[in-house]
Nucleic acid binder design. Structure first.
Lengths: 163, 163
DNA sequence: GGAAACGGCGAACAAAATTCGGTAGCGGAG
DNA sequence: CTCCGCTACCGAATTTTGTTCGCCGTTTCC
């Protein structure tokens, strides 16, 4: 799906999305025009979904982060979709994961302080009647990998899907 | 800490970090040179931590995501730091949260398929002797907010910290 | 073996980044 | 009240980059 040149471009744009196309081209060893066209195609293909600034949360008055796992009932599409939508539009929420296994939802929140977290849990979660339970984990540190590489093919037994 | 102009610049760079400085300047209503200087200062102050391409995980051969919560013992700094570091360097791992509450660690992983996830859990987690338990949640959907705004000051009783 | 298609290249042109001297507005001191 | 100095913004000039497009070498498929 991605050749080596694509992968290299993607890697460099993950590390610094604001470096110039010329710089990327030089680092991956092709002409700027080639690099530009490749990048355009990667975007068009949906491999590159966008470019976003990474912001320091404490600077935005959000010194406390937590991951809140919630269980909702009934697990119908209507309830799930509505709950997801209402969580996403809360200013405290950074991210919503719809999941299965131990939890139905994982909600990553960033708030001013513990007081604010408590208010969020009681006023925004506990009050909702579809929420039958939730647990919170305060996040002390968060290390996010800047670059995600293509996974190498694993050692397979017996070959691929087209025999 | 951030005036209205800073906030506007930060907001626009969160939405699209690769738009030109001119475009940002036009949108926030200042001259390009002013916008450039502001952006430089925001970076220097650590408010803007970097700019990263958002990559489609399935395109990288990672069609399955999960959040794994792990409990480790003893909860000493040495064990925590070592476990964190070893998780971060695994290719399957996107993000590591060091937490307290329901869980000690939250590990966001993206793998090829369920088979690969199972291999990860058994070979990379269950084998470690400091891991005393873990639970996994398969992630079906992940909605990440592109723009994080500064939280408005709450209604406080009795005023600020400098009377 | 040849034709067509693909991908990369580099030059030319348009646009953006970056620098820097000038200046308006603001705040403080006299 | 006025003057001074400081800060932040602006806009023009220069350098750098983005973007387009015709050309050419390679590969692929008859």
């Amino acid at each position: 799906m991605l050749d080596e040149l694509d992968s290299a471009i993607v890697r460099h744009l993950q590390e610094d999305a604001r470096q110039t196309n010329r710089d990327v081209a030089r680092k991956v060893g092709v002409a700027p025009s080639t690099c530009l066209e490749r990048t355009r195609l990667l975007r068009e293909r949906g491999v590159l979904r966008g470019y976003h600034a990474d912001v320091d949360l404490p600077s935005l008055g959000r010194g406390v982060q937590a991951m809140v796992s919630a269980q909702v009932r009934p697990l119908s599409r209507a309830v799930i979709d509505a709950f997801q939508r209402s969580m996403v539009e809360l200013p405290e929420v950074l991210s919503v994961y719809v999941a299965a296994g131990s939890d139905d939802f994982l909600i990553h929140v960033a708030v001013r302080d513990n007081e604010h977290l408590h208010a969020f849990l009681t006023d925004r979660l506990a009050l909702r009647k579809e929420v039958v339970g939730f647990r919170s984990s305060i996040i002390f540190r968060h290390f996010r990998k800047t670059t995600v590489e293509e996974l190498p093919e694993p050692i397979t037994r017996g070959g691929g899907r087209h025999p």
